[in-house]
């Protein structure tokens, strides 16, 4: 019971009473977490404010949009100010605005000192929110660490992409770039030249110089840093899962 008092859970599926209003839901769940009286009412008001539903608090949950329901679902988990909050895919199937609101809420909570264990399939969410990331495959933790540690662990390099003019010889440029120190790989596809290297910043100047020497006009440059998606795919493979 002591542990249950300090943890909060936001399940993936909505766990609310849809015939009750948001306020009634929060009051009921607050009571289940031993809140009562004025402190309960005050806390409910705070959470409603936090999830942005103060104006709609007296409407029944069944009348809410998917995103609003998700926010109430999160609000229930926050009522008793848990020290550790488990969030299981809280942004599944909702509109971009609600998703952004949820992600901002998560970041705010973390700044306030709450520890969050956030489960997601969206790598960009993990990348945006997490200090430490664990990758679970077939029920087993196959990697754990900071984002940098994970990318280094799998040896992911950065990719520099040059967009050149239609009349320029991208193939010749790719061959020329292979001679630059630090460039691991360079290849041309249509009017793009991809250069794989450990650190894009280290080779960028040399690449631009080489292009100028050959009279090739660079229209734009993208730097793709190694991301969690690449790490995830590297670790779990590209095969489809059941």
């Amino acid at each position: 019971m002591a542990v249950r008092n300090i943890i909060g859970v936001v399940p993936q599926d909505l766990a609310l009473y849809e015939e009750l209003t948001a306020r009634e839901n929060l009051i009921f769940w607050g009571q289940m977490y031993n809140l009562s009286g004025k402190s309960l009412n005050r806390r409910v008001d705070e959470v409603l404010e936090q999830i942005g539903l103060t104006d709609k608090a007296k409407n029944r949950v069944k009348t809410y949009s998917g995103g609003m329901k998700r926010r109430v679902n999160i609000g229930v988990g926050l009522l008793h100010k848990p020290r550790l909050l488990f969030m299981d895919e809280p942004t599944v199937g909702i509109d971009p605005q609600s998703r952004r609101a949820i992600l901002d809420t998560v970041k705010d909570l973390n700044k306030q000192g709450m520890t969050l264990l956030y489960t997601t399939h969206y790598m960009e969410e993990a990348q945006e929110l997490s200090n430490r990331v664990g990758i679970i495959d077939h029920g087993e933790m196959i990697a754990l660490g900071t984002q940098k540690e994970l990318t280094q662990q799998v040896g992911q390099a950065e990719t520099l992409i040059l967009h050149v003019g239609e009349n320029d010889d991208s193939e010749a440029l790719a061959n020329a770039l292979k001679g630059i120190a630090g460039v691991q790989q360079a290849e041309a596809v249509d009017h793009e030249v991809s250069i794989v290297c450990a650190e894009a910043e280290d080779v960028l100047a040399a690449v631009v110089t080489k292009a100028n020497e050959r009279g090739i006009k660079i229209r734009s440059i993208d730097i793709r840093e190694p991301n969690l998606e690449a790490v995830f795919l590297h670790l779990t493979g590209r095969a489809l899962r059941d």
Binding site: M1, R4, V9, P11, L14, M32, Y33
Partner: peptide
């Protein structure tokens, strides 16, 4: 089935 029972069970309610 609607998930409120598991949620009740993880709350400090016996």
């Amino acid at each position: 089935t609607q998930g409120t029972l598991p949620r009740l069970l993880v709350s400090p309610t016996s």
